[in-house]
Design a protein around this nucleic acid. Structure first.
Lengths: 238, 238
DNA sequence: TAAATAGTGTCTCTTAGACAGTATATG
DNA sequence: CATATACTGTCTAAGAGACACTATTTA
């Protein structure tokens, strides 16, 4: 809407600070992880927060989200997919000032390794979602379950799972993404048939991947297809 | 995140204006409609915009969205469901100042009738989604298709369609919501079976609704059930 | 009566899941 | 060899869609 609207002259209209917070997830040792850091804010001592930054002049929200991540995990552009989650704007969410925060979901193809001396941690996303609110700064205890549920839901009807893998990948690796995010076990045979028969989900690549230390037949390699929405969807049981 | 972060002292950090814009939809004569108004902004003369308001001090984003709607369509609380859509924050989206806008989707059970002398209009949502960008103020040409697609997608896996109907309703009316939003024709027999067999979607109510002017058997009445997510989903064909 | 809408029954086709069986690696 | 993982084949049950049929209204 316009800045010059009838209520603009009202003293009740505030100018808010706008920030971006990023729930950055990756797969590490078959588990879904979430990157956390500690805010430099005395009122939030000892708590964890999602990496966040204020939005700069002439900077888009997407750019702020990418900056919040790249300033924490390194200068080089990471293989990361960013998707806006939702915006949190309760008046009292920051105890000292009105801050509206646009939350992002970030999916990385490789484990997230902070390259900064600041206190950071990587935890499993499912565990973090069950933490009590006091362990998080601000209202980040509410953002984490929202991010996790968004990811879980989008694995059903989009090809987002491939954003959590390096290219190329095997169908066993893709299945382990679904298993980690949904916390279920999937039948390898039926999973394979569904993925291969969903148009545009994956396309065959050259060569095979060597088996793990426990042996097994080498797996074919695949790459992401051109579909973003899956039809039919990969529905989870309920 | 915190206001007092290391980049706060930087001159490049702005304080943005925060606004809420609402894509309010309803069913009218079997068609999905969208409520539009005209901004009082000389730079946007002759264009249409979604109803919007600046966020006030101590006002949540949800409250701003409800206020943007209620100040336009009347004082009494309308039967409206509000859901946050996404946030639009490109630096140049408003030509005069940096304004970050949180867009909402609003679904009304009755046709939206503006009660304000200001220039307003109600158009079919599908038509508005195909308008050229010049007919909309700011970046609202991008918000409308996003809102429409969100609604179309959510009819599949949630019980949101009932928010576009007054209680109680008939299954014919519920079907006409799906047909209006998806722009398809659905088989009445199969639609009925799917709805009734989806747990928690609807529950039988007392009495029957009289048939329309062209006759027909009176229809049973139903009310919304307690499910918000539908299993199995009401999938549209592709 | 015809036409329209509501609701039931039934058939077919597709798909999901269970699971047996085959292929190829490690140890 | 046993074991692990990849991949294929096949059976069954459930769901979607097509469509015939019955029920109850308006004109």
């Amino acid at each position: 809407m316009s800045v010059v609207q009838e209520d603009q002259r009202s003293a009740r209209v505030s100018t808010c600070a706008v920030a971006v917070d990023v729930a950055a997830m990756a797969i590490e040792d078959g588990r879904l992880t979430l990157l956390l850091t500690e805010p430099d804010d005395a009122t939030q001592a000892g708590r964890w927060s999602l990496p966040g930054r204020r939005v700069r002049d002439d900077e888009s929200l997407d750019a702020t989200a990418m900056r919040a991540l790249s300033e924490l995990i390194g200068t080089e552009e990471p293989a990361v997919l960013l998707e806006q989650l939702r915006t949190y704007g309760e008046p009292a969410r920051d105890p000292r000032a009105r801050v509206v925060s646009v939350a992002y979901l970030a999916l990385a193809a490789r484990p997230l390794v902070p390259s900064v001396r600041r206190r950071t941690t990587v935890v499993t996303a499912a565990d973090a979602a069950t933490w009590p609110a006091e362990r998080f700064a601000y209202d980040h205890a509410a953002i984490v379950p929202d991010a996790l549920e968004r990811l879980r839901a989008k694995l059903e009807y989009t090809s987002l799972a491939t954003a959590l893998l390096e290219q190329p990948f095997t169908l066993g690796e893709l299945r382990s993404v679904y298993e980690a995010v949904w916390d279920v076990e999937l039948d390898p045979a039926n999973f394979r048939r569904k993925v291969v028969s969903t148009p545009g989900f994956v396309r065959a690549a050259d060569g095979t991947a060597p088996p793990g230390p426990s042996g097994g037949r080498p797996a074919r390699r695949y790459r992401s297809g051109d579909a973003t929405r899956l039809h039919p969807a990969m529905l989870r049981d309920r």
